[in-house]
């Protein structure tokens, strides 16, 4: 509509109704205030619920762990080399479980971080947009496979395959569990890394190409450093997934607490122990029962520590654009 028409359609000022201000007690204002208050509290409730649940979990883990530490000195727990809570002479040294967790996570990351990053570079920097729209969802589908399927895949397919190359490999072993977890978390790493790389503005890429850089040089010298913050988030999420992964290790790694750095042996992770023990009938309040909470608290502290490290790395090495 033209401005002239609009002016013609406006009523003359003298006829226009004036709006008077209402007093604070006017019913329409009260209703409006009430409605705003209700909406605000609903929003607060939604936003606060996840914070509340997290705090509640931490509270329960800590409060159930405290009686445990009355029986077991904290130093013994942190440095003991045996974890046998169900034996008649129970030992509560968390190291074997932590070692198992680190070992599976380490193997998984050795596979997932390079593969995930390379896949992300390829998707973001090399692949034509149309092909990417097909390939990326297909890769993300890997994340949709139930973890129990990955567990049996590790035990019944990967282990026998590895045994052909390594005849001494135990039937239950950390190596195949770790590798399969690695494959499992590739889509998390690659998908988030790709998002981070694509968020790097194209004028930086053009600047790089304009002085004669190749695609490879542009990817590794400009795009990856500029997207480092997002890449770290991707890696930290991958680490958290690997540390918390339960089914694959419970099925394929053997559930035997074993202080070792040899990946061909069986071992148990913190998560595998929790699964194993929660399945049995443990009397409420017994030390075995409490040990689940202690293990859970340890796991939570580990993932929290990784997140903090990731946060610190991100701040230190960020190339903000």
């Amino acid at each position: 509509m033209g401005i002239d028409q609009e002016l013609k359609m406006t009523r003359p000022l003298s006829v226009q109704k004036t709006v008077s201000f209402t007093s604070a007690k006017h019913p329409a204002r009260r209703l409006r205030r009430l409605r705003e208050a209700v909406i605000e509290s609903l929003l607060l409730l939604a936003a606060g619920s996840s914070v509340f649940v997290t705090l509640a979990i931490v509270f329960i883990l800590v409060s159930e762990s405290l009686p445990f530490f009355k029986h077991v000195p904290i130093l013994e727990f942190l440095t003991g080399r045996e974890w046998t809570p169900m034996f008649s002479d129970p030992k509560f040294g968390i190291l074997p479980l932590v070692a198992g967790t680190f070992l599976t996570t380490g193997i998984a990351l050795l596979l997932a971080i390079p593969m995930g990053t390379i896949a992300a570079v390829f998707l973001s920097e090399y692949m034509p947009a149309r092909a990417r729209e097909v390939v990326k969802p297909a890769l993300e589908l890997l994340a949709a496979v139930p973890t129990v399927v990955y567990g049996f895949f590790a035990l019944l397919f990967v282990t026998p395959l590895l045994q052909k190359a390594l005849p001494d490999l135990a039937g239950f072993n950390v190596l195949s569990a770790g590798l399969v977890i690695g494959v499992m978390i590739i889509p998390y790493v690659s998908s988030l890394s790709e998002d981070a790389m694509r968020a790097v503005p194209s004028h930086l890429r053009e600047a790089s190409y304009a002085v004669g850089a190749t695609r490879f040089q542009t990817s590794f010298r400009v795009v990856i450093p500029a997207g480092f913050s997002g890449l770290t988030s991707a890696y930290v999420l991958g680490i958290s997934r690997a540390v918390g992964e339960t089914m694959v290790v419970a099925i394929a790694a053997g559930m035997q607490p074993n202080l070792t750095i040899n990946p061909t042996e069986p071992a148990a992770t913190i998560t595998a122990f929790i699964v194993q023990v929660s399945l049995g009938d443990l009397p409420h309040g017994s030390i075995g029962y409490q040990s689940i909470y202690v293990a859970g608290l340890t796991l939570l502290s580990l993932t929290l520590a990784f997140n903090l490290i990731g946060f610190a790395l991100r701040r230190k090495f960020r190339e903000a654009y």
């Binding site: 190409y209 004669g212 850089a213």
Partner: peptide, 19 residues
């Protein structure tokens, strides 16, 4: 790539690398 090594370019918006 060889062309760009001999003919370089400055863009409309300053685009230094975050380095």
């Amino acid at each position: 790539i060889e062309v760009r090594m001999r003919i370089s370019m400055v863009f409309q918006k300053p685009n230094p690398f975050p380095k």
